[in-house]
Amino acid sequence: MEHTAREKALWTICLTLVLIFALIPVLWIISLSFKTPATITDQSFIPTEFSFDNYKSLFEGGISESPFIKPLINSLGIALITTFISIILASFAAYAIARLDFPGRSVMLAGALAIAMFPPISTVGPLFDMWRSLGLYDTWPGLIIPYLTFSLPLAIYTLVAFFREIPWDLEKAAQVDGATPFQAFTKVIVPLAAPGMFTAAILVFIFAWNDFLFAISLTSSDASRTVPAALAFFTGDSTFTQPTGSIAAAAVLVTVPIIIFVLLFQRRIVAGLTSGAVKG
């Protein structure tokens, strides 16, 4: 189909608008992070003076004193462990749902859906009370457990959608061709299932990385506080000054890797988000 010049111009405008809308907050926080204390209130979108001081201040004092390093380690560790466990449990369940015939299949799916809709604030109080009597308060498992719960529906739905597309007969064909069941599984099924699991893993990781409510309710020190919670607790130059610059720098550091990641795997993420049709 041929497009007129007018259509193309219109399209270019639409495209630019979407781009600007999507990018403004990101560019803004990057710009803030490079501003100096003297120019941070100059209200200009582009910094007039560049400095890396805000970034340096995040790492000053090494692990023990830096306000950022420990939360970053916590965030990474908690999100990775959550992702790992969640994908294993979800793969079991998704395999069963996609391949096996058993009563309770639809209950499981409906249940997962219900969990996806569950309001987390309703569990915060009881979890706080349980965790404090169990000693799980302000520990990694104390956050991993709720993250697991709320990421499983996402992972299950995504994986079920992927597993349903896998031509499982190939496994039998491979066995007919003389492969052992184990070989058939590792050589045929695993490569087919891996992309789906990887997609689900990205979505779960982003979910755990993003959480704020549990992170501020169930932690109280650097032992387990994650970056989003730490950001809200940053300290300024004096007791009463706003640490705008350091917040911006830390925000950039936790955002840029995720953006690069998202961009690298955008096809997978889109496929995952839409196939499962479960919120991310």
């Binding site: 466990i85 169990l134 520990t139 498992p141 457990i145």
Partner: peptide, 16 residues
């Protein structure tokens, strides 16, 4: 319940 949870977390439980 905690025991059940702990089971799930298993090896992941790293408490400093």
């Amino acid at each position: 319940i905690a025991l059940a949870c702990a089971g799930i977390i298993g090896a992941a439980a790293i408490v400093g």
